[in-house]
Design a protein around this nucleic acid. Structure first.
Length: 310
RNA sequence: GGAGGGGUUCCCGAGCGGCCAAAGGGGGUGGACUGUAAAUCCAUUGUCAGAGACUUCGAAGGUUCGAAUCCUUCUCCCUCCA
């Protein structure tokens, strides 16, 4: 029988951390983060990384692992998280994947083909320059000739993706579809996907409140520190919500009030995108936790039952 | 008290007789997503909805084949002079 992996997903600020800590204690589990920002070191406030106390209560993985100047990727995540899952299983414990990065979670639940190491920054830049000079239609037509299927699926304005598809074709001669086999579920373990949700309005209230708290807790200082260490908006890590906006504020692009508004807005938009992503999974178990602000008992008991019954 | 300017769809803001359910932006909502994913991109946004019908542009009247657009009165807001 395949071993279980419990996955707790959901939009930002829904309350994943609190619940997962409780679950880990009840289920003899260890937590693997699925968060593309918490994985970076020194980005704690803006990414709502669990506190030191929380991190010490339950064993956590893939949090504060990567230098913000380094690049990270789903491919790496899929590899590392699977190794950790195996390790946890080998010790007879339950791996609990917690996070809101849909693609990362997807890379665990499904077999994604990351075998070909293809990436060429120079080529990307060249294509980007080309697009700037010739226009998006030109570059999209180019893709149309090389990989009509991909061109059909990617909107011409989505430059990043158009270029990626071209990059793959130029580097490997393959087409996008060659990597995009029908979703095949992983056979290594049995993923149990729990998606947490709340009433949208309430979620937005929580988001707004949390942004205020982040600011009060020193988000700006955190970004200043990162900036001092040489980080700027060109780094992937600094494109995270909260960070990119504060960098703009520090550069004088807008005042404090507008900064707050923008961070909140972007976070709300993000939460919406997360929800859209998670809705793709037909076998997801959605749990509304509106009524569990103070007491998770009912929710975690429900989840424990689900896990125990396979 | 006098002289002007203005009240437009959730918000800001264009329109100034028909091509206006009304530009544009914001916000909201829905969606896409295979190595940057907290990224990147798309759609939709008066109501019912099938073409189409119905109710909107501060309020009430009026002119006109036809009004958000013109006239009258009322009402609220802003600026300047007193």
């Amino acid at each position: 029988m395949k071993k279980n992996v419990l996955i707790i997903a959901g939009p930002t600020a829904v309350g994943k951390t609190d619940l997962s800590l409780k679950l880990a204690q009840e289920l003899n589990g260890e937590i693997i983060s699925a968060d593309s920002v918490q994985i970076y070191k020194g980005m704690d406030i803006g990414s709502a990384t669990p506190s030191d106390e929380e991190l010490n209560t339950v064993k956590h993985y893939l949090i504060n692992e990567v230098n913000p100047k380094d690049e990270y990727s789903v491919a790496l995540y899929a590899k590392e998280a699977r190794e950790i899952i195996n390790d946890i299983h080998s010790r007879g414990k339950l791996p609990i994947v917690v996070g809101g990065t849909g693609l990362y979670i997807n890379s665990l639940m499904y077999e994604m083909d990351f075998s070909e190491q293809v990436k060429d920054d120079k080529l990307r830049k060249k294509l980007m320059d080309e697009a700037e000079v010739e226009g998006v239609d030109y570059i999209h037509n180019k893709l149309e000739k090389m990989d009509p299927n991909a061109a059909n699926n990617i909107h011409k304005n989505n430059l990043k993706r158009v270029i990626r598809a071209l990059e793959i074709n130029i580097l490997t001669g393959k087409k996008m579809a060659d990597f995009k086999t029908d979703p095949v579920k992983t056979t290594e373990f049995n993923p149990i996907l729990i998606c947490l949700k709340r009433n949208r309005k309430l979620l937005y209230v929580r988001i707004n409140r949390r942004v205020d708290i982040m600011l009060k807790n020193g988000l700006i200082e955190e970004v200043k520190k990162l900036k001092k260490n040489g980080l700027n908006q060109d780094y992937t890590s600094m494109k995270a919500i909260g960070y990119k906006e504060v960098l703009g504020y520090l550069d004088g692009k807008y005042d404090y009030d507008l900064l707050v508004t923008i961070i909140k807005k972007n976070t709300r938009h993000f939460a919406k995108r997360q929800l859209t992503w998670f809705r793709r999974y037909n076998d997801a178990i959605w749990i509304n936790i509106d009524n569990h602000n103070d007491n998770f008992e009912e929710t975690y008991k429900k989840i424990i039952k689900i896990v125990n019954n396979g």
